[in-house]
Design a protein around this nucleic acid. Sequence first.
DNA 1: CATGGGATTGACT
DNA 2: GTCAATCCCATGC
Length: 209
Amino acid sequence: MRDRSLPAGPRLPAEFFARDPCTVARELIGCELRHEGIGGIIVETEAYHESEPACHAHAGPTPRARVLFGPPGRAYVYLSYGIHQLFNVVTGREGEGAAVLVRALRPLRGIEVMRERRPGRSDEQLCSGPGKLTLALAIGPADNERDLGHGSLELRGRPSGESAPELVAGPRIGIRRAADLPWRWCASAERRFLSAPPGTLAAGEPGVS
DNA sequence: CATGGGATTGACT
DNA sequence: GTCAATCCCATGC
């Protein structure tokens, strides 16, 4: 895979994020996430909202979840399973606890750097999971609460030259609570870059018997 | 203050 | 398919 120099889209404004997380999660597919010039096209997202128990904001504005209740358009980076950093963007109005988890990217810029950071992986696997993409982009705890409207951590609209993605929705991955909500969205034409195929059951979701 | 679970990954069988 | 790594923090006593 080669780097392309597609003209970047505009940086997404705070109003974009000041909406319900499901809308933002859908519309983020096809947009670009970058950190220090390294990044790719978002191909998989999940929505989280304080009204449902899978969301860290469900227990209220605890120290960890406080950023989720703050202004939209900030990063929420947290440690999962004691090992992996997961990147979210805060959505909704201030005072509302909600976010979108970015789960996978199609690498677009700085692929050589990503390969150095994730040796031995195919290009398709560089960012095919929420913990993988934070490694490839070097997003970490220091980025928690960062404003995505300024600085080197950026969310931008779909680059000109990128076609509008077809979406498929399904249950969120790796959760046990609220496993029935279809709040995961994937770009159906980007299967190779996803963390799991569309239609993968959530943890704890009963399969067909 | 002690405990237990979790929005995952990668190595190994 | 199975399983360990690793640690923050929410919860409960």
